[in-house]
Write a protein that binds this DNA or RNA. Structure first.
Lengths: 232, 232
DNA sequence: CCTGAGCGGAGGCGGCATCTCCGCTTCGTG
DNA sequence: CACGAAGCGGAGATGCCGCCTCCGCTCAGG
């Protein structure tokens, strides 16, 4: 299918044929649109949705990306990489407790703000090995983060490195529910969890975000009902 | 459609016509099967699935329950009621802190063990007003639970009654992820959160469940991948 | 100006969930 | 026991939806 491998023609052909300028522009539009759509509506979103959002025809999308999986992969690769990179940076921070907390916050924020990423990381419908590899890289780094924090005595001893991804996912899920109404509510529960992670404490640290009001809860429920019928 | 309202026949007819014995038996089977299926696989499960599980034909299901919504409603009504009832019972407990914790545990356990209930309560695709009504009833009771626990000084002052349902949902979501591998993992994070809810503490309370091993996390991911492709 | 890369979007295809229909079975009553 | 009605099963009608293809037209750019 490659345009040049056919007849054993001239020279090396593996360089990307440079793509006409308008085509390249469309490619970028598609990428941007896909990011937006998958982030907000999750991986269930249609490539037709992406096309509409990008303002191009479906055909254009499929010409550029052979299928959904490829597009999703290309899109989230760097976001996953970032996850690993931030963990490594955190390792270099001076205060081990703060380092762990920051990382947890970063991980949660990423997943809370991005339904697609959350689905990708936790339910592996698409980039299984990609994600598995990232997780593999992450593991020792997070372990180190946890051990160090425990060594200073700030982190409770029964906390485990594997708790980190699960907590991030869990908090992000809370955010999912309240998403349309108060997207940052996860910060409140992260605060709570962090206080629970301390080896000991006197008093409490202030929760960064106010609780939802009963009306807001009600509204969340309504919004979710609408969304799931509108989306499907 | 009622069999008796047709011709202005004898006496009162609103009593349920008693249903032949085998039919009643099947009805029960269906109800039991539906409970099992919706609990384990969520509200997306098909009525065909329910029929298969019950060992009856689809037709039988549809003859007894006009549509999915009716069946789901009938099924979850008492589970929702139980949620309210337990809250009220908790109010009567002697130790306010323990009462709140017990209720939180009960609510989380219910949702963690029942995907259908979780979807029903949080995403309201089906019994919107039923759930809304239950929530309405629950609200003052939970408020009381929270206020009392705060009055004793055990519960941090910035905790709010609306945090209760969100926390339950959040913890249950963690359980959802680890479901097939370690269904009780939510208890671990409930422990963590509870320690975070205390106004102050010295040291930590033991977490009731060990963390997942890296292998178990891996396995969860794999299981989820399979499940979502097998189910759809 | 002219050529082919690129475009759009209708529509083919396959899959899936809901619900119906009708010939056969079973209950239970006279 | 016999027979009418209640009940049953499950193939399949129906409608919907997501993925992807195809072909006639457009327009970038040498």
């Amino acid at each position: 299918m490659t345009s040049c491998a056919e007849g054993g023609a001239v020279g090396d052909c593996r360089g990307e044929r440079p793509l006409r300028r308008d085509a390249e522009r469309n490619r970028q539009r598609i990428l941007r649109a896909a990011a937006e759509v998958f982030t907000q509506r999750g991986l269930d979103a249609t490539l037709d949705d992406v096309a509409r959002q990008a303002g191009v025809g479906v055909g254009t999308v499929y010409r550029r990306f052979p299928d959904k999986e490829t597009l999703v992969g290309e899109l989230f690769q760097d976001r996953i990489d970032a996850m690993v990179a931030v963990a490594e940076q955190a390792c270099a921070a001076p205060d081990p407790w703060q380092a762990l907390v920051s990382y947890l916050e970063y991980a949660t924020a990423s997943m809370a703000g991005d339904l697609g990423l959350r689905q990708l990381m936790m339910f592996a419908t698409y980039g299984r090995d990609r994600v598995a590899y990232a997780r593999e890289q992450m593991r020792p780094v997070v372990s180190k983060l946890v051990e160090r924090a425990q060594a200073t005595g700030a982190l409770r001893a029964d906390f485990s490195a594997t708790d980190v991804p699960l907590i991030a996912f869990m908090l992000a899920s809370a955010g999912e529910y309240a998403g349309p109404v108060q997207p940052d509510i996860w910060q409140r529960y992260l605060g709570l969890v962090i206080d629970g992670m301390r080896a000991s404490r006197d008093g409490v640290s202030e929760l960064p975000v106010p609780a939802l009001s009963p009306e807001e809860i009600e509204e969340s429920m309504r919004a979710h009902g609408q969304r799931s019928s509108a989306r499907r």
